[in-house]
Design a protein around this nucleic acid. Structure first.
Lengths: 196, 196
DNA sequence: GGCGCAAGTCAACACGCATTGACATGGCGT
DNA sequence: ACGCCATGTCAATGCGTGTTGACTTGCGCC
């Protein structure tokens, strides 16, 4: 598999502790799946990254699919939207997008994970449900009006689109280009969340 | 692999004709890769779909990767943007997005193919260059002003985002929901291509 | 302190895959 | 009409995979 730019082990050597081992495997899976995708990631890779043994994975997670499902659930965590200041929301999101090219950034990893899930026919429905529950619903409530659901969807789409764009481009945004990007994206988002 | 909802053979039975065989394989590969992705698509699937033999693929394309690369190149074709009426552009694009859930639609297939490419570290740079050449550059020229390149990028991102959203959702948009969607997206696009 | 069971290790299996090479065969040029 | 080479077929090989089962080891409790 491709280089994960990580030390060989994610965790310090631990004594016999099933919970810690399980957690280490799950964490390794989240990283590995995000970078390499479901198919290109082998259980052996994950086990090595977790400093564990391959055979434990089918035992603890009931197989590769079970591990993936659990990693996906763990990855999509409801964001603390309520903490965000609505007057700064658009710009904050735009800034976040502009910075999202570094693979080391956990947000980038998360997104890549989700995108990987979106492209597989088997994982796409699962992702759809998860996104609805943990992403669209909170945003809708946060927007708090009748058309909230639909606007949340549009917002999510824009968000996804820009992240894919950054992913394709690879390089980070710098200088004037970055400024222009942030400006433009801010305006677009504002247009969506501002309008009734 | 998953059902491609296609007859067993893409082409009528042909005599010994290397070019036709090659073309049939390439066509089958474009479809199969788009639906199933690189990893989940086996050369045996492609060969069966093309009504051909597996062994010919390494011979004609130098292996699976070679076939994928060529299929990717063949898939990204410059769109006929110049034909589009600028006054109707936003709505046309929005309508297109709304209709893009059917896997039978070749545009959906194409897009899924590209998205697959975007998630793989090896194919992403290739895709990046292709998108720049055949998508961003035409749009930029079509918009025809100084900030065209940057606006083209934003437009591409929005386009991608909505298609991913449709992909995740799976089901087609209908009735009032569709109307609202088209309305909103039209406004967003208009905001991008309209502003100087 | 020693037993018992949870936790971890290891080897082996069955499967699907891409790729290779040897073989058959049909069509075109002469 | 015939021979030759491109074209297609087929079986076999090697590799990587997920998963299973039997084995070993160490922690915690009586």
């Amino acid at each position: 598999m491709t280089d994960l730019a990580e030390p060989a082990h994610l965790v310090a050597p631990r004594r016999r502790d099933a919970r810690a081992t399980r957690a280490a495997i799950l964490e390794a899976a989240k990283r590995a799946f995000a970078v390499t995708g479901y198919d290109r990631t082998s259980l052996r890779d994950i086990a090595a990254l977790a400093g564990s043994d391959v055979a434990l994975i089918p035992r603890y997670f009931g197989g590769k699919e079970g591990l993936f499902t659990e990693a996906l659930k763990a990855t999509i965590a409801p964001d603390r939207l309520r903490d965000w200041d609505r007057s700064r929301f658009s710009r904050d999101v735009a800034e976040m997008m502009a910075g999202a090219a570094d693979i080391a950034d956990p947000r980038t990893r998360t997104f890549q994970f989700l995108l990987q899930a979106a492209t597989s026919p088997t994982t796409a429905p699962l992702l759809g449900r998860a996104v609805q529950e943990r992403f669209l619903a909170p945003i809708r409530d946060w927007l708090g009006d009748a058309a909230g659901q639909e606007r949340a969807r549009v917002l999510a789409a824009i968000y996804i689109g820009f992240l894919v764009e950054r992913l394709i481009r690879g390089a980070a945004l710098e200088g004037a280009e970055r400024t222009a990007f942030v400006e433009r994206v801010t305006a677009v988002i504002e247009g969506v969340i501002g309008a009734a």
